[in-house]
Design a protein around this nucleic acid. Structure first.
Lengths: 144, 144
DNA sequence: CTCAATTCCTATTATGTCAATAGGCTTTGT
DNA sequence: ACAAAGCCTATTGACATAATAGGAATTGAG
């Protein structure tokens, strides 16, 4: 029931770029700030790039930038893009095969409720919300 | 992000036994009703047995019964027993290793919210609730 | 114009977990 | 006594995850 590193890293990449608005970050910069393998990150950021969530500049002095304002991205957009559906069971995912048991299956109801609860959270939190939390955490550290 | 068959089967086993109160069900009966491999189910029901969620009778004419009333079991009890923590990231699970990033990690907040939402659902739904849903589904089928 | 810095692309691999299978041992009612 | 059941532990096949690897393409700076 865990979210894989792919989705988690994608979220951290987007957060990192959201925290560096107006700058171009090289892959290796993001990787070292986030302590993620460069080569693995390369594959993940490629997905974000193809979806248009980040913009890349090729060649020397190239790198990545976030494409839109942090408040335009929900966590759900990012996790679904990289993880696929967050349905707790296959039969609830978007293009699921029809299940023969669905007529009498009562347990699916609990999975629907879990799914709804998860979607509600991830679709109502944006990168900007998380940035605000991050800033608050930093302030708190300073006080201590 | 899916719940494994282990937890899902465990829930179905408990539901099956909850629907056969007062009867003794052999492993093979449950397996055939639920269309689960007998041998695999054996391992899962062993966990339920050791936890005291079901009672077994050994020897000829033996089998399994649910130990307590369906309303006494939350879905959370059953899923956690068989799946472990349903935390969406390792660092939120009960006996998690301390994470060096936790001080500045903002993304963990979204995982906390997901975790809370999931726990809220599974801890507030009992087998009895699901039995009621099942009965309603059956009535609906009859009307059609 | 060349070169170094950077992104882009595809293939391969190591590891681990899941889901199941297998086979024999133990208990108990008839 | 024996057949019918549960109990126990080991093994395996398949698959996904999480990387690693290596080179091709692009581009700004000197």
């Amino acid at each position: 029931m865990t979210i894989s590193t792919k989705g988690r890293y994608a979220l951290r990449i987007m957060m990192d770029l959201a925290g560096h608005l107006g700058e171009i970050s090289r892959l290796k910069d993001i990787a070292s700030r986030q302590e993620i393998s460069e080569k693995y990150m390369e594959q993940i950021i490629a997905v974000l790039n193809k979806a248009g969530y980040v913009r890349s500049t090729r060649g020397a002095q190239g790198g990545y930038q976030i494409a839109r304002a942090p408040k335009e991205y929900t966590v759900g957009m990012i996790l679904r893009l990289t993880e696929g559906s967050l349905a707790p069971v296959e039969c609830l995912a978007e293009n699921a095969l029809p299940c023969g048991r669905s007529g009498k299956c009562a347990t699916v109801e609990i999975y629907k409720r879990i799914y709804d609860a998860v979607n509600n959270v991830i679709d109502n939190t944006t990168l900007q919300d998380l940035l605000d939390i991050e800033r608050e955490k930093a302030v708190h550290d300073y006080v201590i």
